[in-house]
């Protein structure tokens, strides 16, 4: 765990130093000390100080926070669905967020109202997961299969509606949606960081507090119930947390795939399946992954930012194939 924390500190350091404007580690440290009121003389001129303190710092902090949130969402959903390949798409979060964003763009809110797009995406994400859970509940079955199939059906339905709305939209609006869907942190600042902190930190703390029920769910439904856990209620609580975390992430950064699969999977091999160790380890690993991916998104091209979602897909897809091949062999 100490190594992971060190890894995150190094990644954040690198991400602060590198980019279109470069800083030395010394400049970053002395600017940090000045920000904390521990050093008086500025190490950088005003423009460079603003780029570092007001553009790059919130972006890197947001990458770390959202990366951790994505990884935690993965752990929660994989435990609830008892499947190491489960991710937020099972809850219809991605398609719900996309529909929310598309509606905000289509109606012009996103151009008129500050933060309307992420807010609409968040409402869409939460709404979709709520519909998934209510439909599954109405079928009077809390079985995993009915949850998964309901998730797929609701996702497909929402994607269909999204496509219809997009077809009926002007080109510049479609562009805005695609730009957001590709996922990224360009232009995100302290306001986004504040919103993310308000949702992600309490949700992470709640997940950490529930580490013992999470461990019980590893045993399977019958065993967990025989040990006195109210499994349907706990599933609902954990799904709500996962929906909050992934809704917050998707609404701020768009789609950032594979982090929720890669970080928990890699950490399960290192620290084992118990939630008391897996949750913090996966959080740190997810944070490292997204900080470095966002650095790559900024640094690969001098001319424009690449989509963050594309970068995580480039590493995530081969990783997933690697896992599948290893599982097949085993």
């Amino acid at each position: 765990m100490g190594l992971l924390a060190l890894g995150l500190a190094v990644s954040i350091g690198l991400a602060l130093c590198l980019g279109a404007v470069r800083y030395t580690p010394l400049e970053v440290v002395s600017e940090g000390l000045r920000g904390l009121g521990l050093a008086a003389s500025p190490a950088l001129d005003e423009a460079h100080a603003i780029i570092l303190g007001e553009i790059r710092l919130p972006r890197v902090a947001l990458a770390a926070l959202l990366g951790g949130a994505l990884a935690l969402t993965g752990v929660l959903l994989q435990t609830v669905f008892q499947n190491p390949m489960a991710d937020a798409s099972l809850l219809g979060v991605g398609s719900g967020a996309a529909l929310g964003a598309v509606i905000a763009v289509k109606l012009g809110w996103s151009f008129d109202v500050f933060l309307a797009l992420p807010a609409a995406a968040f409402v869409g994400a939460l709404g979709a997961s709520l519909v998934v859970y209510m439909v599954a509940e109405n079928m009077r079955s809390s079985s995993l299969t009915s949850l998964i199939l309901t998730g797929l059906a609701v996702s497909a339905f929402l994607s269909g509606v999204t496509s219809i709305v997009l077809i009926a939209s002007e080109e510049f609006r479609v562009r805005a949606v695609f730009f957001w869907l590709a996922g990224g942190l360009e232009g995100r600042g302290f306001i986004h960081l504040g919103i993310a902190c308000a949702i992600v930190i309490p949700a992470c703390l709640a997940a950490a507090a529930l580490h013992r029920p999470l461990d019980l769910l590893l045993l399977g439904e019958t065993e967990a119930r025989a040990l006195g856990l109210n499994v349907p209620r706990m599933r609902l609580v954990l799904l709500a947390l996962a929906a909050l975390l992934s809704g917050a992430t998707t609404s701020i950064a768009g789609s950032v795939p594979f982090v929720g699969l890669m970080a928990p999977h890699a950490m399960r091999g290192l620290v084992g399946p118990r939630a008391s160790r897996l949750l913090p380890a996966a959080f740190l690993a997810g944070a490292i992954l997204v900080v470095l991916s966002d650095l790559a998104a900024r640094a690969i091209s001098d001319r424009y930012d690449l989509p963050l979602g594309a970068i995580t897909s480039l590493s995530g897809a081969p990783y997933l194939i690697h896992i599948l091949r290893r599982t097949e062999r085993a």
């Binding site: 590893l218 045993l219 399977g220 019958t222 065993e223 084992g272 399946p273 118990r274």
Partner: peptide, 9 residues
């Protein structure tokens, strides 16, 4: 016949 959690000690 419970598969349980094979990685738990």
């Amino acid at each position: 016949l419970q598969e349980g959690a094979p990685k738990l000690s």
